[in-house]
Write a protein that binds this DNA or RNA. Sequence first.
DNA 1: CTTGACCCTGTAGTTGCTACAGGGTGCATA
DNA 2: TATGCACCCTGTAGCAACTACAGGGTCAAG
Lengths: 133, 133
Amino acid sequence: MIGLTIGQLGKATDTKVETVRYYERIGLLAAPGRTSANYRAYGADHLSRLSFIRRARDLGFSLDQVRALLDLASDHSRDCGSVDMLANEHMADIDRKLADLTALRRELSALINSCKGGTISQCRIVEALAPRG
Amino acid sequence: MIGLTIGQLGKATDTKVETVRYYERIGLLAAPGRTSANYRAYGADHLSRLSFIRRARDLGFSLDQVRALLDLASDHSRDCGSVDMLANEHMADIDRKLADLTALRRELSALINSCKGGTISQCRIVEALAPRG
DNA sequence: CTTGACCCTGTAGTTGCTACAGGGTGCATA
DNA sequence: TATGCACCCTGTAGCAACTACAGGGTCAAG
């Protein structure tokens, strides 16, 4: 028990206080002990777990994926294949998003290049958006 | 007045019925007339406006951006520079997201490659996520 | 002893829908 | 005529992942 306040924990993990409480509410972070004034008092275990959560979130894992990762990580004797699988699935997600965004970018870029100025009534962007407008 | 039902309008624009009603609720699509049975009856103007909305959404514009585009597009004599600006801002957003995702992909890829199998306790992925875990 | 920064709970807002529940309508068919 | 089915209506609650209050209590410094 090192007795961090919620604000200190937040600062240490770059997490807003409300977010920490939110993680507690949804059962991702265990409820800590309380001081006599009913303040949350966090220990080293909370700090490391929240660090894990934030790092995984930064890498784009959903809260559900983070939960799964935490479950997997807690069993040290388990084969790490399942962790690898989760990471690879997430990688595939990212690749899909990249492809989508790239296609979008191309289309929007073509649209923007088609605009040669003038008034809205001649604007190719507006025209392209509303084919029968 | 061509008298489309909400279902027909939805089919024509590839929009779910609930989504059409949602657009009406938030004031993006004008409330149409009603039949004697209180069914919504849409006209050509609704069809073209909803087409515009859906196309812009497909291109990744937010509803707020769509609203702005619709406002701009309604004034035909206006210079189209403002439309161009909005499109360019959106393009910049896309580029930022692309850069973020690419960085993420690189980081995650490095993480995945570091895993050489074995148990969780030796797993570099878990290790990298929880530096002091 | 007061000011300000922190803490507490609980609830509602954000974005863009989606999914009911609990009803009414319209058309075809037996 | 009844009955079934697909469609329509309103209103509300849910999703992710927070964020932002409102309306209070606590604590340390000056």
